[in-house]
């Protein structure tokens, strides 16, 4: 569905992505693993249109989308759940969710219904729907961010490290949610450092190291320990 070829992105003189190619297939969980500083967030921001790529191509269903503005990317159905900046802290949970649906203003109606669906999916958000989003716990904010992305009816959901900073038990919960979304047939692109969990749920994975995809495959077909080690620590010189 989303075809990324030879994407290069840099911050000034520092090249963060040195030609990244990967495919996100329809209906399934594609996972991007990699150590700190590999360029995972940079890739997400490039896809989302916030950073400009210096070269390469990016196509959704054959249509070129490289160089589009963030709002145009959203209107193509690519919706991001970013790392660290998850919610609008001084808006209520309900308003945060409604905010997710602004991008599809044109098709009127349905927003109330979708809101109801999301609140049913995340009962904890329903209990807190009138609370300011900034007062939610880390795990709840992550749920809210996922819920808000669902409100946009995404074709592809991009998620940047949903497990950072959460307790193991909450991480399990978040991954169960992601697994559930995958089972509904949604297309998800998940960026993770927690390779152990990610490999349990992914249909396909890529390994990003120092701005380059160095490995890809399907879980089960590869040596998990090797992948996990490289995802955490980066490639060893010896290997």
């Amino acid at each position: 569905m989303l075809e990324i070829r030879d994407i290069k992105t840099s911050y000034g003189k520092i090249a963060a992505l040195k030609g990244v190619s990967l495919d996100i297939h329809d209906g399934g969980l594609t996972c991007l693993l990699g150590p700190n500083g590999a360029g995972k967030t940079t890739l997400i921001w490039t896809i989302a249109g916030i950073l400009k790529a210096q070269g390469g191509s990016m196509k959704i269903e054959g249509e070129n989308i490289l160089g589009l503005k963030p709002h145009q990317i959203v209107s193509k159905g690519i919706v991001t759940v970013p790392e660290n900046r998850l919610v609008f802290p001084d808006m209520s949970v309900r308003d945060n969710l409604i905010a997710g649906a602004f991008s599809r203003r044109k098709e009127k109606g349905g927003v109330e219904g979708d809101l109801e669906d999301v609140l049913t999916r995340f009962p904890r958000l329903r209990e807190r729907s009138e609370q300011l989003a900034g007062t939610l716990s880390g795990g709840e904010q992550q749920m809210l961010a996922v819920g808000r992305a669902l409100m946009a009816k995404p074709k592809i959901l991009l998620m940047d490290e949903p497990s950072t900073g959460l307790a193991p038990i909450i991480v399990e919960e978040i991954f169960e949610i992601i697994g559930g979304l995958r089972d509904e047939g949604r297309t998800i692109f998940l960026v993770e450092q927690n390779a152990h969990m990610a490999l349990k749920y992914a249909n396909r994975f890529y390994l990003l190291e120092q701005g380059k995809v160095t490995f890809s495959g399907e879980p089960g077909a590869v040596d998990h320990d090797e992948v996990i080690q490289r995802a955490y620590l980066g490639a060893r010189k010896a290997s």
Partner: peptide, 24 residues
Amino acid sequence: LNVMAQLRMVGEDPILAGMQGIRV
């Protein structure tokens, strides 16, 4: 008409607002 809500989003976090499809 949700105009103020969108402006508030831009005010709170312009990048996140952009990710919601708002033309900051």
